[in-house]
């Protein structure tokens, strides 16, 4: 049994000028104590997937397909049951730690609120004790429970967010661009915190990010998304060593690095497709250096190769082991 099984997930946003397909037929699974990096650029649908797992999509979103969490179908779970899943089973941290914390509530009380939502009868002493321990484990002095959010720096605030998210021992933590609004050095500090969590806690994680480099050393599996599609999925080493999809390949070489022998700037031509009027066939074909005739006409299916998945016509007919 997997912790999470996503099958043929489709999400559409209804807007004034027509429907936008944000996620198209995405399937993947996540095991217990496994970390997945969901990587892609803006509009690729990665954040939408994150929200859908908790069923907190905006009201104009329509969801189809199945999301099996511990064999329960999140898509059709009654609201009451879904509420008990949120925070306790699956929890989430967001990009901007400032807007995710209530600015006029002491940190302590934000922890208590979280407890009360799931354990109404818990004693304050006990809540306080657990909160202190969690904060300590994440590198914040427990005395700061009495502080307000504005008394924390950006990095510390994100640590508080992480502590709040894991205080109920969820089985799955979703982090949506957790370091994007932070400075480079602080970004690394937060990644270290997440890495430690991964090692110490019995918890699965989904890291949603645009930065292939940042998640390389922490995730077990990687899913690459482009224009609502999961174009490549596999274990981290094989993806970074031998990326299959042309998008992944180009993305990897176009990340600026600090190596002095590598002074040539590589890039992917063209623009990201619009979700309103996406190109026919494979969504990546207008930018793809290997585009073939079929790519312009037909959307490729997902091919399986050595336990890896790739949605690209180049791999049609390739057998396992090639």
């Amino acid at each position: 049994m997997n912790l999470l099984e996503v099958r043929n997930l489709e999400i559409e946003y209804l807007t004034r000028d027509g429907n936008l397909k944000a996620v198209e037929g995405v399937s993947f699974s996540l095991g217990f104590h496994e970390t997945l990096g969901l990587v892609g650029e803006s509009g690729c649908g990665k954040s939408t997937i994150g929200l859908s797992l908790l069923r907190i999509l905006p009201i104009n979103a329509r969801m189809k397909g199945r999301i099996l969490y511990k064999e329960k179908d999140v898509v059709n779970l009654p609201d009451e049951e879904m509420r008990s899943v949120r925070g306790k089973e699956i929890s989430m941290i967001f990009q901007d730690p400032m807007t995710s914390l209530d600015p006029i509530m002491r940190i302590k009380n934000q922890f208590f609120e979280t407890f009360r939502a799931h354990f109404p009868k818990m004693e304050e002493d006990e809540m306080f004790k657990i909160s202190s321990n969690v904060l300590k484990s994440i590198g914040i002095d427990p005395s700061r429970l009495e502080n307000y959010p504005f008394e924390f720096s950006g990095g510390m605030r994100q640590r508080v967010m992480i502590a709040l998210a894991i205080v109920l021992n969820p089985s799955l933590l979703i982090a949506d661009e957790p370091t994007t609004s932070l400075d480079v050095v602080v970004q690394l500090q937060i990644m270290e915190v997440l890495k430690e969590l991964k090692e110490k806690k019995d918890m699965s994680m989904i890291l949603i990010t645009h930065d292939l480099g940042l998640v390389a050393e922490i995730v077990d599996k990687v899913g690459i998304m482009y224009a609502g599609n999961l174009v490549e999925f596999g274990d981290v080493n094989s993806i970074y060593e031998k990326p299959l999809h042309p998008y992944t390949q180009l993305l990897l070489v176009s990340i600026p690095n600090v190596k002095l022998e590598d002074m040539e700037l590589k890039y992917i031509k063209g623009n990201l497709p619009s979700l309103k009027s996406p190109p026919a066939g494979c969504k990546f074909h207008p930018r793809c250096p290997f585009a073939m005739d079929i790519c312009t006409r037909e959307d490729p299916p997902t091919f399986e190769l050595n336990g890896r998945k790739v949605k690209c016509w180049l791999y049609k007919g390739e057998k396992d082991g090639s």
């Binding site: 650029e41 803006s42 645009h210 930065d211 292939l212 180009l250 993305l251 176009s254 990340i255 600026p256 700037l265 590589k266 890039y267 992917i268 031509k269 623009n271 990201l272 930018r287």
Partner: peptide, 9 residues
Amino acid sequence: DVSIRSQIL
């Protein structure tokens, strides 16, 4: 976006 950054540079 990452795939656009290098273009602009």
